[in-house]
């Protein structure tokens, strides 16, 4: 579903991704771990068509990036640590706006479904700026799955959430994963990544330094592996 070969990205003279190789099969949930500055967000932004690679090959859902970015965007849902929602619009208005942008059919029914899924139907007419961080993040997931994408990219979705909101988010993520979606999620939380994902890849200094199935390793072994491959 996602195939990346020898990906290079620089900001000015500073290299961020240095020949990264990465692959995800259809329906797989991959967690991408790595220290701050490893290039996780940059990598996800390239997959999301928001940033151009300098060199290398990126194929998402059979389409080459950046040449076929519009075709890729139709298949993608993106949740970042920012909600990508308008504070002065209600939850329902935000979803209606994005439904129009994505050409979602039968949009009233779909908005109802999504608001129920993320547990925000009772607050549908409230302004997003009145929502807690957890509620905004749940609505952001609703926005991302509104057009029924088959690939979902999550960039540190648990950032700033309290325990309860994070648990709710985990529940939604599990639901999405069991529905057969392909998911790539960046995170700093090793135990959560081990719990949710099928595979954990560790990104350090712009390359994938380890890739392990979560069936093969428990969180303690994974933490040790993480420390060993990210050690300076």
């Amino acid at each position: 579903m996602i195939k990346v070969r020898r990906l290079v990205k620089t900001f000015g003279p500073k290299p961020v991704l240095r020949g990264l190789d990465f692959q995800v099969t259809r329906g797989e949930f991959v967690a991408l771990l790595g220290p701050n500055g490893a290039g996780k967000t940059t990598f996800l932004r390239i997959l999301a068509t928001l940033s151009r690679p300098k060199m290398g090959e990126v194929i998402v859902a059979g389409h080459h990036l950046p040449a076929e970015a519009a075709a890729v965007r139709r298949r993608l849902g993106v949740v970042s640590h920012q909600p990508l929602l308008y504070g002065d619009l209600s939850a329902e208005q935000n979803l209606r706006f994005y439904s129009w942008m994505y050409g979602v059919g039968d949009l009233e029914r779909r908005i109802d479904e999504v608001l129920h899924l993320v547990g925000l139907n009772p607050r549908r007419r409230d302004l997003v700026r009145q929502f807690s961080r957890g509620m905004q993040q749940r609505l952001a997931i609703g926005r991302a799955i509104l057009h029924r994408p088959d690939i979902l990219l999550f960039d540190e979705p648990h950032t700033g959430l309290d325990q309860e909101a994070a648990a709710m988010l985990d529940q939604v993520l599990r639901e999405i994963a069991t529905a057969g979606r392909t998911v790539v999620m960046t995170s700093h939380d090793i135990s959560r990544a081990a719990d949710l994902a099928d595979r954990v890849d560790i990104l350090s200094k712009g390359v994938i330094t380890a890739s392990e199935s979560t069936e093969d390793l428990d969180p303690i072994q994974l933490t040790e592996l993480y420390r060993s491959v990210t050690r300076v």
Binding site: T49, R73, V78, S80, Q82, L84, Y98, M101
Partner: peptide, 8 residues
């Protein structure tokens, strides 16, 4: 980013 992600 939300706008730029739309397939238009």
């Amino acid at each position: 980013d939300g706008l730029l992600l739309a397939p238009v």
